[in-house]
Design a protein around this nucleic acid. Structure first.
Length: 124
DNA sequence: GCAAGGGCCTGTG
DNA sequence: CCACAGGCCCTTG
């Protein structure tokens, strides 16, 4: 049958709404694995999480993170090592402060991705 | 339910 | 730096 109709009685294992959750979890796991002093781009996070080109989704998810999260969201930056969060904002300031605290040098809203990029860096 | 606009994006020109 | 298009999701009307 090309059209599996779910019973209106008990759609317990319902995909679709849940897959959103799954994506968030995947993103969470990927970012959680970024080592200290390293950065990763939105695109790479999406790719490693199996989301393909949904870098924008990653940004959206990150923007909606709870305050007390242990997720190192500050290690997630835009492509080419650019920091997309504007300076002067709480998040932007926090991100820069944390990165610098981890030894990441920031020069004009830019991070040396060749040095701190992950996983394609040389931290091994 | 569809169209339009916007957002921590990305790549090309 | 700006403009466009490609992809994903949310909010409005």
């Amino acid at each position: 049958m090309p059209k599996p109709k779910p019973p209106a009685s008990a759609p317990v294992t319902d995909l679709g709404l849940e897959s959103l959750q799954v994506r968030r979890e995947a993103i969470f796991l990927v970012i959680a694995q970024v080592p200290e002093g390293c950065v990763i781009t939105y695109g790479d996070v999406a790719r490693l999480a199996g989301l393909g080109r949904s870098a924008r989704l990653v940004g959206r998810i990150l923007s909606q993170l709870p305050e007390g999260t242990r997720l190192p969201w500050h290690r997630v930056i835009a492509a080419a090592g650019r920091i997309s969060l504007p300076i002067g904002t709480v998040s932007g300031n926090e991100q820069r402060a944390r990165l610098r605290a981890e030894g990441v040098r920031i020069h004009n809203d830019r991070v040396d991705i060749r040095r701190h990029g992950w996983p394609t860096g040389e931290q091994s």
